[in-house]
Each structure stands twice: as C-alpha cells, then as structure tokens.
Amino acid sequence: MEAKQKTIDIIKQTRKAAPEAFEARKLYLKMRKAIAEALKDEPKTIPQVAEATNIPIGEATYYMMAMLKFGELSVNGIDDMDEYYFYELKKA
C-alpha cells in the first residue's frame, strides 16, 4: 500500500507534464473564476454571463457546460422566450 501511494513520484522522474496542459488548466481556472463571479448573486443565462465577464460567448458556453458537467453549476429555469436557460452556482 505504502509503495503504491508514491507511483506519481516514480513517473515524475521519467516524464514531464505538457506545458499546454498547464495552459488549459490556467485558462479554465480563469474562466471559472469569472463565471462564478458573474453568477455570485443571481442565476444568469449564457449571454448574460458572457456580457458580464467579457468572455467570448462561444467560450462561455463551452466552459459553463464543462462546469455543469463537473457539477459546479446547475440549471435554474429558462427565460421568457424559452431560448436561454439560467444557470446558477451549485451550493457546496
């Protein structure tokens, strides 16, 4: 058991993580922070989040859907036109 817990240290000796992976991580954190900030007070639709955060709307969609998948967001109704769903932060 003890030996197994350190397998990550073993692989670290032979391989390095790709810089792109760190970039992707950084970008996600940035996006997530901005999105979370925008959703702090009230549920918003994707266009509303995009406007509040200045994130291009296509990217906002992608990252919000990822957050939804990872269980950080939840759906809260749809707008009057039945066009855009509202998303809110999931309470921990």
Binding site: I57, A60, T61, L68, Y84
Partner: peptide, 16 residues
C-alpha cells in the same frame, strides 16, 4: 448528453 438540453454551441440557445 453533454449539455442540459439540446443547445447550440455558440451561445447555449435552444435552437428553433
């Protein structure tokens, strides 16, 4: 599915 409903990828709108 990947989204909560059928949505278009540019802005999460329900397509009609």
């Amino acid at each position: 599915r990947p989204f909560n409903n059928i949505l278009r990828p540019s802005d999460g709108k329900v397509p009609d």
